[in-house]
Amino acid sequence: MSSAADLEALALLRRREPRGFDLAYAAHAGPLLGFLTRLSGRRDVAEDLLQHVFLRLAERGPELARDSDLRAWLYAVARNAYLSHARRAPLELDDAALEALSSPPPDVEARLLLGDVERALGALRFEDREVLLLVAVDGLERDAIARLLGVDSAALRQRLSRARSRLLAELSRLPVAPFARRTRP
């Protein structure tokens, strides 16, 4: 379900008012940048993809239905942008970018926990990583995620369960030393 802020942003965008864009950017740019950085493993790539997402919003926003799920639409565009990018050029993970996502740390223990999750996420396959990241997005409904991934709710549950198990397995065997650089298909 769309939030009141998203509905207002959509209504303004449909009237081509800049404030609609500003509202959408303020609410979603940070979480989308986190999603894209964790998906691609590269901050610079994530910034480029974020720009693509919001320029697409400016082009297509005025045509969106007034009751559209703006959040789901943005994540669908972000995911497709990432997939197109990954098809063009295999990405090399930048561990420093992933580590930097966890800072500034609230305390040492939390930093370790969050840092470990980042590293474990980075080690997962794309299919597992994307489903975990999408489910963790605040306010993104399971039905919307299933539609975005092109699966039904039962398949989404199964995929999520598998991804969750793999993340836990990855967390349990994480080395203390930072990961070596890897290439991502």
Binding site: G30, P31, L33, G34, T37, R38, R43, A100, L101, S102, S103, L113, L114, V117, E118, L121, L132, L133, V135, A136, V137, D138
Partner: peptide, 8 residues
């Protein structure tokens, strides 16, 4: 824990 990951 995933939801608590900080966003840049």
């Amino acid at each position: 824990r995933l939801a608590a990951l900080p966003n840049p």
